[in-house]
Structures are given as structure tokens and as C-alpha cells.
Amino acid sequence: MLALSLTNGLVIGIVYALTALGVSLVVGIMNVVNFAHGEFYILAGYFSYLFAHTLGIHPLAAMVIAVGLVFLLGLVVEYTLIRPTYGDDMYSLILTFILSIVFQSLFLLVFGPYPNKPPSWIKGATEVFGLFHYGNQRLAALAAGVVVIALFFAMLKLTWFGRMIRAAAQDREMAELNGINTTRLNLLSFGLGCALAAAAGVILAPVFPVTPTAGTPVALTAFVCVVLGGMGSMSGCVLGGLVLGVVENLGAAYVSTGYKHVFMFLILILVLLFRPAGLFGRREV
């Protein structure tokens, strides 16, 4: 039981981390919290369902197309809605919140209220450490999450784009002085943030099907990860995601299933009370 909960927590935690990375990236660079982040996750889930199920494209190809489309949509949203609000944090909150409701009602109209599930990549189950049988699809989700996170960090460390991101997250004005085109950087970061949510969505949708309103808890979890890890700290939010995933599943197993998501809120309160800059925070308060 304990081992199973831990494994579940790890799988979910990795996907939380992936979602939270997108939020963290956008907060760190643009100081914008995207309240429609969860809807991008859900949208990618719907896309991969649509392409794989309805159009009969191979599930993996469907996933890639879904992430790509959400990335493009993220660019459009940044260009049309977010860009004019620079310097006014309040309006970006309001706009992205409205956007999230617009998405939710669109999902409801197009896909209906019932859960939709893209096909699994693989079938069957594997015996883990001789302790319990665990669904192969979940194991695959874990692996995929780890790979995407690793790729993201590699990009941050190794590429020119990654260096620009790190520079801008450190000190925007300095980055601007050093000739970084921050307007384009914002555009790409926002798109990338959405793409990370989308990646999480396509990875987890075969396990947890998507519904029109499921994006809100997804986004909230990501926000808590980001606060837990320290606003703008990338590695912090990965750890935050793992912590949340594990705590949530242990809580569900040993305390109460119905209150699964409440544990996360308790963690948020504790962090705000005792470590407001986050467990691994570096931002000055």
C-alpha cells in the first residue's frame, strides 16, 4: 500500500512538475501568472483524443501535433492578450481568468461534459519490485515526464535560447541592456510555457481523462508547486511537484480520498506562514 501510494505520487508528481515548470517559466520571465494554464493542459488532452480517436492518427504523432498546436495557440494568446498588459499585472490576471472560463465553456460545447480519454500507448501491467502490479501506461507516463523535464533543463543549460531565458529571469533590465530582444523572448516563453502544460496534458490524459473543468485543479496544483518551490525557481518547482504528488497520494491513501486536493492547500498555507519565499526560494521579499 505504501509503495503503491508512493509510486502513484511519483507519477502524478512528475506531471505536476511538468505543468508547474510552464507556470514558473512565465512567472520568472514575464511576471505574469497565467490563470488559463490548466485549460491549455486540457486542450492538449482533447486534441490528442481528437486526432488519435476520431482521425485515427497514431497516438504518439497525435500527441506531438497536439503540443505543437497548443504552442502556436500560446503564441497567439501572448501576442493578442498578454502583450498589451505589460507592467499591469492586474490585467493579465483578469484577462487570463476570463480566458480560462471561455475555454471551459468552449470545451463543454464541443466535447460535452463527459470525460474523454485518448488511447493508451501500451497495455498490460508490470510487477514492480515484486511488490505490486502497476499499469504500464502509468509507468510510461512517468518515463515520458522525466524525459521531457530532462530535455527542458538541457535546453536551459545548453542552448542559446536557454541562456537568454536564464539571463532575463535573473534581471530583466540587464538582459535588455545586453541586447536581448525581450519582446520576442516573452512571446517564445509564453508559448513554451503553454507547450509544457500541453505536454503534461497529453502524457496524463490516457490515465486521467480530461473534462471541461478539470483544468482548474491542474492549474491550482501548478501554482502551489511554484509557490512551494519559490516563485521563478525552476528546480524548486520540480521538487515542489514531486512533494505535492507524494503528499496528495499518501493523504488520499491514509486519511481521506475525498479531501485529496485539500492537502495541497494545507501545504500552501504552511508555506505562506513559515517560508513565504518558498522552500527553495531565491527571490528577495
Binding site: 501568472v33 490563470f35 499585472d89 492586474m90 490576471l93 482548474t216 485543479p217 491550482l220 501554482f223 502551489v224 509557490v227 475525498g258 479531501y259 486536493h261 485539500v262 495541497m264 492547500f265 500552501l268 498555507i269 505562506l272 506562514l273 513565504p276 521579499v285
Partner: peptide, 26 residues
């Protein structure tokens, strides 16, 4: 709890609060 940290934290926390209230009511 959250206002010493600034406005964004209020938005995050109140959204969380509203979700939690739903869970409790259900």
C-alpha cells in the same frame, strides 16, 4: 496569510480557497 507577499499571491490563494470550499461542500 498572503497579502504581505503581494497581489499575485492573493489571486492564487483565493482561487485555491474557492476550490477547497467546493470540495468541502461536496
Amino acid at each position: 496569510l498572503c497579502l504581505k507577499m503581494g497581489g499575485i499571491y492573493l489571486s492564487l490563494t483565493t482561487l485555491g480557497f474557492s476550490e477547497i470550499l467546493h470540495i468541502i461542500i461536496n
